[in-house]
Write a protein that binds this DNA or RNA. Structure first.
Lengths: 141, 141
DNA sequence: TATTGTTATACTCTATAACTATA
DNA sequence: TATAGTTATAGAGTATAACAATA
């Protein structure tokens, strides 16, 4: 399991590395492209990233000219982190295709049916579970 | 994938934590119990752990009285790290069962057939792959 | 008072370099 | 000269605490 995940992570990291990105950057760019401009808190909490870490992630993306920090006029404490046109173009035409390629490479040992099956099993493993930590009364010493 | 692995790791770590152990410790203890006394280098390289890290892993296990450092008489540079009787008893009767319990808990969403299927798919994902990095000539820009 | 973003700081994990003793 | 073990050190990566601006 962990070995497969290590390969998975390394393949995805290698896919975005030529663009000077980490997989975290891809996640953030995709979230903005999909959901629209968001605050750093939203971007952080949605993806289980610490908000202080998100500062440097956005710093890096801004330095690359891929996102821009605009203030949210409705709540001036928040930013509205949005994609620049360059950021959107790079994500859609270069980075996302590279990620899809990498995922395809990772799943190369599987047939299309097996890919679907594997995905379903993984999904159930994560989400089809009794409320975690709720039945700890029955734990063994 | 990574989310499932995070759960996997956390469940296994929680299983050995009551014994004051980390999953790395379990791996080392099991390796010694299975293969017999080994040098720190063997223990390290076999499981992709750095040899300097292995020093502190063995330090911790020795402090807990679970392993002992004996010199290898055939090559006095090497240790022969062996289990103490306490270490073997704890591993076999407490830690290993806790690990099996944890694994069972992790795979709870699956039926027996699905567990076997999932294992086979994972195995193929890791090992049924073209020699990694060999066909990079065909990589895209 | 609480929240957003920021900075400085600390902590964990791991890797590198240099040393010793042995081969 | 090379290897096993050790130590000190440095580098990621991440988390905690405290602060300013805003709500």
């Amino acid at each position: 399991m962990s070995k497969a995940n290590d390969m998975f992570v390394q393949i995805l990291e290698s896919a975005v590395e030529p663009f000077g990105l980490r997989s975290k950057d891809f996640i953030v760019l995709t979230a903005i492209d999909t959901m629209g401009p968001q605050s750093q808190q939203q971007l952080a909490s949605t993806h289980g990233i610490d908000r202080t870490t998100m500062v440097s992630v956005v710093d890096g993306l801004e330095r690359l000219g891929l996102v821009q920090r605009a203030r949210n006029p409705d709540d001036r404490r928040k930013y509205a982190i949005g994609l620049t046109s360059e950021g959107q173009a790079l994500l859609r035409h270069k980075v996302a295709p590279a990620m899809l390629d990498a995922l395809d490479n990772f799943l190369a040992p599987f047939s299309p049916d097996e890919r679907e099956l594997f995905n379903k099993l993984l999904w159930r493993l994560v989400y089809e579970r009794d409320s975690p930590g709720e039945d700890e009364a029955g734990e063994r010493a």
